[in-house]
Computed example of a mutant assay.
Amino acid sequence: MTEPRGPIDWARQQQTEREQRAEQPGRHTVDTITSDALDQLYARIDTLEHVAASNKQAYVDAVKDFQAVEEAALVLGAAYEWHLHALDRIRLAVGSLCHEPHPSHDHVCPDDVLRLVEAALAQPKEPRP
């Protein structure tokens, strides 16, 4: 039998398997079940309960992991926004230092600083070694 591709296929496959099991001869009734067959049924129930508990724990763990990722994304998003606003404040601060031309002078012109900072910010960041 092929693997189901989605929940509808899975449900159809389960229904088909249930129908096939119901049609099989030798299915036990209350009057015909043996002690060994009853022991096998209880063992199967124990196994299925264990599997269900494991699945439940896996689901709980996955939800916790997802929540942790969501929280990290919120923190990173807030940090990103903070840095964007910080860059805007830097641009405004450096830009407010100098608005008049300085053809020749012996100090560093804030206009040059602003151009250098903006050029540095526009460059793609190289990964660290």
Rank of each mutant, 00 (worst) to 15 (best):
I90S: 10
A78D: 13
C109P: 11
E49A: 05
P110Q: 04
V30T: 15
P101I: 07
D112F: 01
F66G: 03
I8S: 03
Y59S: 02
E17N: 01
S104L: 12
G95V: 03
P110R: 11
H102Y: 12
T16A: 08
A79Q: 10
L121C: 09
H50T: 15
E49F: 05
P25K: 02
D88T: 02
D111V: 07
L121M: 12
D112Q: 15
C98L: 12
S54N: 13
K64Y: 06
P101Y: 03
G95A: 03
P25A: 01
T29I: 06
T34C: 03
D106I: 00
L97H: 02
E49K: 03
C109D: 12
R89I: 04
T29V: 03
Q15C: 01
K56D: 05
V94M: 04
C98W: 10
D106V: 00
T16W: 10
V117I: 13
A73C: 07
D106Q: 11
A86M: 05
C98N: 15
E19T: 07
N55T: 03
R27N: 09
Q15I: 02
H83Q: 11
E49H: 01
E19F: 06
W82G: 05
Y59D: 01
A78S: 14
Q24T: 14
H50D: 14
V113D: 07
L121D: 09
A11C: 08
Q57I: 09
A72E: 09
S35Q: 13
E126F: 01
H105P: 02
V94N: 07
A52C: 09
T32C: 03
S54W: 11
A11G: 01
A120T: 12
R44N: 08
H85Y: 06
A73I: 10
V75W: 15
P25C: 00
S104Q: 13
T47L: 11
Y42I: 11
W82Q: 11
D46T: 10
A72Q: 08
R12E: 15
E3Q: 13
P127N: 14
A120W: 08
A52G: 10
A119N: 00
P7Q: 11
G77N: 06
E19W: 09
L76K: 15
D88Y: 09
